[in-house]
């Protein structure tokens, strides 16, 4: 039986960001989005959503402290 790991309680929501979303989100920050925390291209969730190296993922975590917290990771080889 094949299961969808994205439903697991430990796995937060991962979404691939479009080019526009990336430029909108990172235009006013004082760091390069290429220095974001990384996620490997062989990561099971990356495979499941079909992201490719260079994509930026928006990760919406359920946080114990903030309720909901949005963070980003960049896919690398």
């Amino acid at each position: 039986m094949k299961i969808d790991i994205q439903n697991h309680m430990l796995v937060p929501k991962h979404e691939i960001m479009t080019e526009e979303e990336i430029s909108e989100e990172f235009s006013e920050v004082d760091y390069d989005f290429k220095n974001l925390p990384k996620i490997k291209s062989k990561d099971p969730v990356v495979k499941a959503i079909g992201a490719e190296p260079g994509n930026v993922l928006r990760i919406t975590r359920e946080s114990q402290t903030a309720g909901e917290f949005v963070t980003y990771r960049i896919v690398e080889d």
Binding site: I5, L10, V11, P44, V45
Partner: peptide
């Protein structure tokens, strides 16, 4: 390995 790096963090 099975659920990804974000699950490992959690």
């Amino acid at each position: 390995e099975v659920l990804g790096i974000e699950a490992a963090r959690q």
